[in-house]
Design a protein around this nucleic acid. Structure first.
Lengths: 237, 237
DNA sequence: CGGACAATTGATCTACCTCAAAATTGGTGG
DNA sequence: CCACCAATTTTGAGGTAGATCAATTGTCCG
């Protein structure tokens, strides 16, 4: 459970007892290939999960092949905490890349939050940040241009990766296809492609081999109206 | 605190002790005119709030007069629980109509959740449903037509109002202007107007005097792809 | 009765979509 | 190491849902 611990400690400072309790959680690890579902819309999961390695994403299928992607998840994330309190899934969780995922029984997590309310608060807080990110995406889809939305997603993913030590130097992994970007941002893959070329043309970014390099961070943030406040990256009081 | 109690009991059955603890919360009531801010982007609130009467909404201002509305709130809602764990606001909360709002100090709510973890779980659950609604709006803004989005919002508001006894008979209050609908759904007020006329023309709905009447519920749900699962209206186990 | 706000209408424009094909890329087995 | 397959990216050519701008009309109150 090192990954979960690292995530929790990035959010709040834990006592020895808390740390030990987290480490003694009964965890079962599983690996998945790319493009597999971990939990499906309508399921009633009995476990929460923590991303150990690889990327996951949450999505929902609408009719006629339409798909909306809600979030991308990186190592340390707990993309499925909601099933702790909402028994039936209203969306799906799948892998973007090959991934290693740790599963913890709901019962153990509930017990943990009862014995250590501060850990409960940290997990609750995590789901609130999740919601804050949803709001930010909503603002993008409702009121920003394709250019602004794409730039914003790049800023967000870089900031999140950097915060857990998986990126730096304005360079980060980004194993997301243009089609997936479109389904996340409410755009077509064709239009994503054209806007990416425009951003490349301006020398703002490079995106190749699943790697994003931002050549002009300040300019990217400005044009995407990116303000990281909503990520609430600072530690909790 | 009758309103909060009613809301909590609509979600889970409370014990006598829990009920009493909720009722003895130190509450301060305030009334607001229409169009006033209750909490602003950047604030660090010290209280949570519960809607007693009237409608609220959450929103964020982007540049150049653009605004994104994230949610509408009706009596019984707790639109500001996130400030309990995220000290600085990343959006604003304002009134849509004249409204009466109850404020409870964060400290008291935290204390309540410590003494009665089940209440904490219910509140946490409430914020998770909030996030589920955000996801549903995202899916609408990303992948649905204006027609589908508007219809979906009508279904959602009716379902939420009906669940707390504020609507029935396919008729409900809806004190939302066409401009506000547009800012919620990522559309212009002009287009909202035209789509509403189309829905009226088909005999689907009536919307006048801040009152919505749905004449063909099943057809509206179908055309909006509305499935209430995401509202998680059933009581918690 | 007047003033402000909300709804409606008309005309024009454009950001982004759809469809379809071609070019690239990356992974795989031989 | 190469050839090949499938998935992705890229390009081109229309098409359209919804935006913008600017009146006009309607409605609600004080």
């Amino acid at each position: 459970m090192t990954m979960l611990l690292r995530k929790l400690e990035s959010i709040a400072t834990l006592s020895d007892g808390e740390r030990e309790a987290v480490q003694s959680l009964p965890v079962r690890n599983r690996t998945f290939g790319a493009g597999q579902d971990i939990v499906r819309d309508g399921d009633q999961p009995s476990h929460c999960c923590v991303v150990i390695d690889g990327w996951l994403f949450r999505y929902k299928i609408l009719g006629e092949g339409r798909r909306q992607i809600f979030s991308f998840h990186i190592p340390g994330d707990t993309p499925d905490l909601q099933s702790l309190h909402l028994p039936v899934m209203d969306h799906s969780l799948g892998t973007l890349t090959q991934a290693s995922v740790a599963f913890i029984p709901h019962e153990s997590v509930r017990d943990l939050t009862l014995r250590f309310p501060r850990i409960g608060a940290v997990l609750w807080r995590d789901t609130l940040i999740d919601a804050a990110i949803f709001r930010e995406w909503m603002a993008g889809m409702g009121r920003k241009s394709a250019y602004g939305r794409i730039g914003h997603l790049f800023c967000e993913m870089y900031a999140k990766l950097e915060a857990v030590g998986l990126a730096g130097d304005y360079r980060c992994p980004l194993p997301i296809t243009q089609g997936e970007l479109g389904d996340a941002l409410g755009l077509s893959n064709v239009h994503i492609n054209r806007v990416l070329q425009e951003m490349r043309g301006k020398g703002l970014i490079t995106l190749r081999n699943n790697t994003l390099v931002v050549h002009a961070w300040a300019e990217l943030c400005r044009s995407a109206e990116f303000d990281p406040t909503y990520l609430h990256l600072q530690k909790a009081g």
